[in-house]
Design a binder for these strands. Structure first.
Lengths: 146, 146
DNA sequence: ATGGGGCTTCCCACCATGGGAAGGTCAAGG
DNA sequence: CCTTGACCTTCCCATGGTGGGAAGCCCCAT
């Protein structure tokens, strides 16, 4: 039931590099070693690593993952605490999504107004040159105005 | 009409640190210097810097910004080229948005199923422990199953 | 002329990840 | 028993943008 780092990596889906890194930042405890210094992992360790990998797939940053691992290993945790972390993560995701969506919409609007042919005039560049959407206070620029 | 780096920073909304960095990665040309080595910027430079700042606000990575600045300064560019960059950026934003939305939805579903009170059982942890959505092949784990 | 604020360069840190070098180890097969 | 190749170890470096800070120079106003 002892695996070296490569086997644990395959079994958990986390690269050996990352396993060492997780250890170095104390996300996981220091692995036991063989006499020759090789790290050894148990099936239990692999379970933890898989848990971590899945948590990362939800975009959770390391510190949140750490909290969750702690809660996971505490059989008496109140589910409230877990849910709180999840809700915070959802809120963060939503805020990031809003931000990206705003970028995308603004850009799409400009792109739509750009004919995209061989002519040089382009609302995208004009906008970037001219300031925030709605404000077109370009004065010193002679070119790039449509 | 000559400003030092601090004034240019205020006028463009880009920190002095970043101005030096942009210069070091050749996003902008090397600024002229006074005899004593101070960088000097013109109003034209500030226009370029503002262009860059606005482009960054669309989430454009440096290399794309660089391309755009080049096109912007070329009065004869075909708008097609600009639009292509914009479309690539839009596609990237969309793909990031999808990814985050998938995370958010999966997490929201789990959170919704979690009562979030003082009881310890929690579908969120069970899922993280148990594998991908739909697959609940937990065998070695006695706890965390609902 | 002195003080304070600005400028310069250089190094370090973040976060999570990958690449690679230099050197030790293990197992299989000759 | 020895070689070979695959694995392991640590250490350093890079990414992308950004900020912090130190050491030292410069400029202006008092």
């Amino acid at each position: 039931m002892h695996m070296n780092i490569g086997e644990a990596a395959k079994a958990s889906g986390i690269s050996p590099k990352m396993l060492r890194y997780y250890e170095s930042i104390s996300l996981i405890p220091q692995a036991r070693r063989t006499d020759s210094g090789y790290r050894i992992y148990t099936l239990n360790d692999v379970d933890t690593l898989r848990f971590i990998r899945r948590a990362r797939e939800f975009g959770l940053p390391m510190d949140r993952v750490k909290l969750l691992v702690g809660l996971w290993q505490d059989k008496n945790r109140p589910s409230r605490e877990v849910k709180e972390i999840a809700m915070r993560q959802i809120a963060d995701l939503e805020s990031k999504i809003s931000e990206l969506t705003a970028m995308k919409n603004a850009l799409a609007q400009l792109a739509q107004a750009c004919h995209g042919d061989s002519r040089p005039d382009c609302p995208i560049l004009s906008d970037l040159a001219g300031g925030s959407l709605g404000y077109n206070n370009v004065d010193r620029h002679s070119a790039d105005m449509l």
